[in-house]
Design a protein around this nucleic acid. Sequence first.
RNA 1: GGCCUCAUCGUCUAACGGUUAGGACGCCAGGUUCUCAUCCUGGCAAUUGGAGUUCGAUUCUCCAUGAGGUCACCA
Length: 477
Amino acid sequence: MKTVRTRFAPSPTGFLHVGGIRTALFAWLLARQSSGQFVLRFEDTDKKREVAGARDHLIASLRTLGLEYDEGPDIGGPFAPYTQSERLEHYQAWAQKLIAEGRAYADPYSADEVQAFRDQARASKQPFLYRNHRPESPPEWDGTAPLRFKSDPKDYAWHDAVMGDLSTGPEVIDDFILIKSDGYPTYNFAHIIDDLEMEITHVMRGQEFLASQPNYLNLYEALEIEPPVLVTMPHILAENGNKKLSKRDGAKDVLDYIRDGYLPETLVNFIASLGWNDGTEQELFTTTELIEKFSLEHVQRSGARFDEKRLDWMNGAKIRELPLPELFERSTSFWSEAGLASDTDYRQKVLGLVQERLKFFAEIPELTEFFFKDLPVDDVLITGNKQLKRYSSAELKNWLTVSRDRLSLSDFTTEDITTILNELLSVTGQKPGVLFSLIRIATTQSPASPSLAETMALLGKDRCMNRIDQQLSALNT
RNA sequence: GGCCUCAUCGUCUAACGGUUAGGACGCCAGGUUCUCAUCCUGGCAAUUGGAGUUCGAUUCUCCAUGAGGUCACCA
């Protein structure tokens, strides 16, 4: 069997969203699981649509997610160059072959004339077929007019690794453009030549190409080449509505998720699970497991919707699985200024306390603020607390004073604080919901925190006592 | 409009003719002597509709409906 060679072939027209990444991911998984090669190729034949910086951005996106390619525009390879605009002579050569065989001809019409044909078809509610207007004796092609494929309309029945057995009639076959009047090939032509020359074995792409597949089959025949394995992926749908996920509808750049502190392995797992499963009830996969278990047979034929809630859950689950030192290492760029100014060891301990409540790293500053700076006393925390609001300031002050006195004798280990807090419950005769809430608010000025004893132990005695004093004076008024 | 594809809880999905239609996310309720979270337990919730084939259809066939794609000198 031939070595599996897959490719990801984006056009440098913008960032990569989850839909694009999934095509890349599945191609990458297929190559990796069979020790094949994964190729990156830039399809830059439409210079009008090209966006500056898009190439670097695309490369950064793949690298960040760990989708390393074996051959590509920036690293070369045996079939270089991997950028279509640098391969024009290849398309020219194959075009000449088609012309010589009478399978390609110059388009004699102006753009306006073709548009008129199109409008006419549309007006009579017919699909537009250029070949209905195929010129009888087209002029010789001099490169200034578009070069069209002279198709051979017929039935097709073929197999798609995901979509199964497909078939169409001759009415979908048309004389599409091979080379535009600007000298660049169209995608329809260029990708076939490149996939052939680069020895690509599996062509994976989105469902939007399904309708043109019969035309590609017709061209393969004219070129007398064996088509690769065809793999058509369903679309990923936007969160609301049924439209395919697109940049216009607010699809996010995958790097935005990284910037928000989602782990690359979460994105990989999540995107893989959109339209693929291994047939078991497993939900969380390491990337290694994905490579091992991925199979085209288990790819869905229907579109899947992107659900950020599920993404949050998955990322939280993966964050919890990470050993603390690694988690710390990977979250370094997400701390607040005050956090970064603090002692490394202390910061890591703080992270340990919030690890289980973190969904993505961008939440770190908000969740950890009170560990690094003294927040001003906020009366609303008490007046708005359903446990505390019914008590008078005097009562609260009394309990807090008792607590302060007792805590001042503590060595402030977690164990000792726990013991003392429990003692204080009986001393004050209060439920934990009341007393602990009071002490939590006094020591953190936050509505929520990790467990009280651990939080206080980490904050340290001086800080806690000072903060309790501050709260006490605020309760005076 | 022609052609193509798709169709299970709100969402991601399992069940390759026989299950009380399973799991996960989310949501709700309870538990873990405190909040938030974690963890645990329980609950709500689906086979688009109609014919057919079959002893038996989520599963096979046909029709309808709905959704998506495509009909570019864009990919």
